[in-house]
């Protein structure tokens, strides 16, 4: 099934399991969301479980906080990545800190779903990758599935968490299909995993870049280079163990992401792996990222976004040391 369908199925299951789970957002009810991820859920669960809210992101997050105080488990949809910023203050100053401010007397089981990333040819504010802002904020958990299977399970695990979770959905991956095992998640929410084994270079990616890394690894294989790919899955907390184990084997690491590279998730991975794998590294950790510019007009997105060639160029540089 597609990731969009897997998310829909995961949300449906979470709502059926717990009547405190609410969906809130713009156009998520009758329309089923602009990406149809919530299609059919308002018809099934009613308008008190699936709320078409007024058009105000801070209002959505702020009222979700109040509902969480009341014992609900709101799942908010932010329609597009670039529209999260009107809600940024409520997320970072309130949602992220309220458990701390209450000294644990209150928890904040709020999930914020954010369709993110490029490759869809959309207008400004519709293709961004703002995950680093939230990974930088203590009190938040930040995850991003790279496959329909992970999407199905990770959304349910995020809803089950008593902490706020920023759930970044790679919108370029909404429609490709993949196998979903509805019996078993396989691994816990906050764990990374090797999704392709290899010996010479490690590629680390998350969300939309996982498929790109796998594509690059396929091409490299035809050229005789063996690449291992780690899907980070969870950005905060970040499970470094599989990355450390991989780099200890390959000695080379390239991090791939759509977000701008400066002060980014890739920067953090580079710093930590350099610290933990210094004597295993044969080359500096390299980042392949979006440029440090605003996301350009859609006709230039192929210039801006990393592609397999840019990933392989970095692989070649790493191998050249």
């Amino acid at each position: 099934m597609s990731m969009a369908k897997a998310l829909n199925a995961g949300l449906q299951r979470a709502m059926a399991d717990n009547d405190k789970v609410l969906l809130m957002g713009e156009d998520i009810g009758r329309l089923g969301g602009v990406f149809r991820v919530t299609e059919g859920l308002q018809a099934e669960f009613g308008e008190k479980r699936v709320l078409d809210t007024p058009l105000a992101e801070s209002g959505i997050i702020g009222t979700a906080i109040g509902l969480a105080m009341r014992g609900y488990r709101p799942v908010c949809e932010i329609q597009f990545d670039g529209f999260i910023f009107p809600g940024f203050d409520q997320i970072t100053s309130q949602l992220a800190k309220l458990t701390y401010r209450h000294e644990g007397a209150m928890t904040m089981p709020v999930v914020i779903r954010v369709p993110y990333g490029g490759h869809i040819g959309a207008v400004e504010h519709h293709q961004e990758s703002p995950e680093a802002y939230f990974a930088h904020t203590p009190g938040l958990r930040v995850v991003s599935p790279g496959s329909p299977h992970d999407a199905y399970w990770m959304i349910q695990e995020a809803i089950a968490s008593d902490d706020p979770v920023l759930f970044f959905e790679p919108k370029s991956r909404y429609w490709p299909k993949g196998e979903v095992d509805t019996e078993s998640a396989g691994i816990p929410l906050h764990s990374s995993r090797v999704v392709r084994e290899g010996t010479e270079v490690t590629l680390v990616a998350y969300g939309p870049s996982v498929s790109l890394a796998l594509q690059a690894a396929d091409i490299a294989a035809t050229e005789g280079t063996s690449i291992e790919v780690v899907d980070v899955r969870s950005i905060s907390p970040l499970d470094f163990e599989p990355i450390v184990a991989s780099v200890q084997k390959t000695g080379r690491l390239v991090v791939v992401q759509e977000a701008p590279g400066f002060v980014s998730v890739g920067s953090e991975i580079a710093a930590t792996i350099t610290e933990r794998c210094f004597y295993h590294l044969e080359a500096p950790v390299l980042r392949v990222a979006g440029f440090d510019t605003p996301f350009p007009p859609a006709k230039l997105e192929s210039v801006y976004l990393p592609d397999a060639d840019r990933v392989l160029e970095a692989v070649d540089r790493a191998l050249a040391y």
Partner: peptide
């Protein structure tokens, strides 16, 4: 009696969400 909120006005939304919860309950 809920916590003080130092960012001006943020609590208005929390209160409104809480009141929505009373309705749902």
């Amino acid at each position: 009696f809920h916590l003080y909120t130092l960012v001006i006005g943020s609590q208005a939304l929390h209160a409104t969400g809480y009141a929505m919860g009373m309705q749902f309950d």
